[in-house]
């Protein structure tokens, strides 16, 4: 059980079940009865009522100690609830829409980050590259806090101007927006080649140079993106 709402509900149930008030009332009544009995039997010379009253007094004292302990527990639970409830109420007031409200979400695969694109990075028909300095982590935190807009007509999250989708296991992937660049299949392949050649068009991997799917325009687009790569030097390309 990790949901704060569930925890708060359990604490409330325990507080309700704690018999503090009833016990206190019963104990007070028992004390008053014992006093009346003591008054009525005073001077009779019988030992039995005196012994019985001593036992009752001891019981009342023990019950009083237990009541003090229960009161302390109640106080602590109430203090905990006071901290928990505002959070729970905030959650209730702003439910997290979309996938993030249904399962834990995880950051985009590293192949999306420009500086992590490698020779083996899987290529898709469309590939969104995250440029360095783009606060994807901040976006994810905002999504988790329920601060992102969920666009039901597009089934995507919008946060800080960036659109994100969510895969089956809860992995977030970048779609479009500031700091995100969309490349088609051959452009992304050209980018991988440029990264491998550290921007030197003369030392491109021969497999890519021979690739019939990669054309001049692809290299140009890839070069524009490569300018943001950590290995880029202005004299490159």
């Amino acid at each position: 059980m990790s949901n704060p709402g569930e925890i708060a509900a359990v604490i409330r149930a325990v507080l309700e079940a704690l018999p503090v008030d009833a016990l206190r009332a019963a104990n007070t009544a028992a004390g008053e009865s014992a006093e009346r009995i003591a008054a009525a039997t005073e001077g009779t010379g019988h030992d039995a009522p005196r012994e019985a009253l001593a036992h009752i007094a001891e019981g009342i004292e023990r019950t009083g100690e237990a009541l003090a302990g229960l009161g302390e527990i109640r106080e602590r639970l109430n203090a905990y609830l006071a901290v928990l409830v505002p959070g729970v109420e905030a959650m209730v007031a702003r439910p997290i829409a979309g996938p993030a409200g249904k399962r834990p979400i995880t950051p985009p695969n590293r192949r999306h980050h420009l500086n992590s694109v490698g020779r083996k990075s899987q290529v898709r028909e469309e590939n969104t590259v995250i440029l360095p300095g783009t606060d994807v982590r901040g976006d994810l935190d905002a999504i988790r806090r329920g601060e992102a807009a969920w666009l039901p007509d597009r089934d995507r999250c919008l946060v800080n101007g960036r659109l994100y989708g969510v895969e089956v296991p809860g992995t977030v992937y970048p779609d479009e927006g500031p700091g995100l660049v969309k490349l088609n299949r051959s452009e992304y392949k050209a980018l991988k080649g440029l990264i491998e050649a550290r921007g030197d068009m003369d030392s491109l991997p021969s497999a890519l140079a021979n690739n019939p799917a990669v054309t001049g325009a692809d290299w140009q687009r890839a070069a524009e993106v490569y300018e943001h790569h950590k290995d880029y030097r202005s004299e490159d390309t």
Partner: peptide, 10 residues
């Protein structure tokens, strides 16, 4: 083959 979507695992 690629399904044309943004989810890399589909």
């Amino acid at each position: 083959i690629d399904d044309g979507g943004g989810a890399a695992t589909s």
